[in-house]
């Protein structure tokens, strides 16, 4: 676990780093405690009325109501439903895009590239509004199709990169044993590219799950709208912070578990990269790589997340 960036610290340096570390803990913990305390203080609003602090029981008593939890649960289910449907379509669209981009004929390749660049460069939210207004599909399908098209474009790019990164011998071997070009792509190249790019695809699906909250804007009743908006309109401003807090926790639980899954899969499919920072797990000494590649490890390093 030692980093190569600095020497193994001696007793003096260890003591110093321990002191700094403890100072850091105190500083950070102090900051968090101060934030919690400040939030908990009773507030005086402009007209002189005093409201209880944010941790006061009167701000949290709605959660005794079963209906509140039911509403939140329905919201979460709606979010998951939209994410699931959109993910399936996004994968299908992504596969189609990747075939279009990697096609041999320029008549297919160039239009696909243009369409793909267009979809990738446009905000998802604008696409949702567009689909909602032009095709008047209703908010669910507007959200699903915008998310599917946008994320499909990104997954398609990832798959294409995966196909391109394969050694050309794979395709040549497929053609040599008499498979048609299409069959080669489907049965030889695509499965390998898919496995290679699986971590990136799953990371993109996490983004998709997060982006379902954009459907809030077009009026879909997902977690954010039902939890933060409808409930706090219904129960009043007093509970706004509490609802926000609970919705945040639900979102984090969903997204972190999916991210964790992505990481497990990434580790299993194993893109091994050596880093210079101490947080990376390293197993044993690094193997000597291909002498022709100066940065054999750098090539294997892939960013695991992409902003939405």
């Amino acid at each position: 676990m030692t980093s190569v960036l600095y020497d193994v610290p001696g007793p003096k340096a260890r003591a110093r780093s321990r002191v700094i570390s403890i100072l850091g803990i105190v500083l950070i913990a102090g900051g968090i405690v101060a934030l919690v305390v400040v939030l908990g203080l009773p507030k005086e609003s402009a007209n002189g009325a005093v409201q209880p602090g944010l941790w006061d029981a009167s701000r949290w008593d709605v959660f005794n109501d079963v209906q509140v939890w039911r509403t939140l649960g329905i919201g979460a289910l709606n979010t998951l439903r939209m994410a699931a449907v959109a993910a399936v379509f996004a994968l299908i669209i992504g596969i189609l895009f990747s075939f279009g981009r990697a096609a041999d004929s320029a008549w297919v390749r160039v239009p696909t590239t243009v369409v793909l660049e267009f979809f990738r460069g446009m905000p998802v939210l604008l696409m949702m509004l567009f689909i909602l207004l032009v095709f008047s599909t209703g908010s669910f399908w507007a959200g699903v199709s915008a998310l599917a098209v946008y994320n499909g474009a990104i997954i398609g790019e990832a798959l294409r990169a995966g196909i391109k990164a394969l050694p050309s011998g794979q395709r040549e071997a497929g053609l040599a044993i008499g498979l048609t070009p299409v069959a080669t792509r489907f049965r030889i190249e695509f499965p390998q590219a898919f496995r290679q790019m699986l971590p990136i695809i799953i990371a993109q699906l996490v983004v998709l799950l997060k982006d379902t909250s954009l459907a809030f804007v077009v009026g879909y009743n997902e977690l954010l709208r039902s939890g933060n908006y409808n409930l706090s309109q219904f129960f009043g401003n007093r509970y706004q912070f509490s609802f926000f807090f609970v919705v945040l926790v639900i979102y984090l639980a969903m997204n972190l578990s999916l991210s964790w899954l992505a990481r497990v899969i990434a580790r299993r499919t194993g893109s091994k990269s050596g880093g210079v920072t101490p947080t990376e797990k390293r197993d044993g000494p690094t193997k000597p790589g291909d002498p022709n590649l100066v940065y054999s490890n750098a090539l294997g390093a892939q960013s695991t997340g992409q902003p939405s």
Partner: peptide, 15 residues
């Protein structure tokens, strides 16, 4: 990273 942007902006704009 695991919080939706909409939620962050909701916090900023309402809370």
């Amino acid at each position: 990273r695991n919080t939706p942007l909409t939620l962050v902006l909701f916090f900023c704009a309402y809370l």
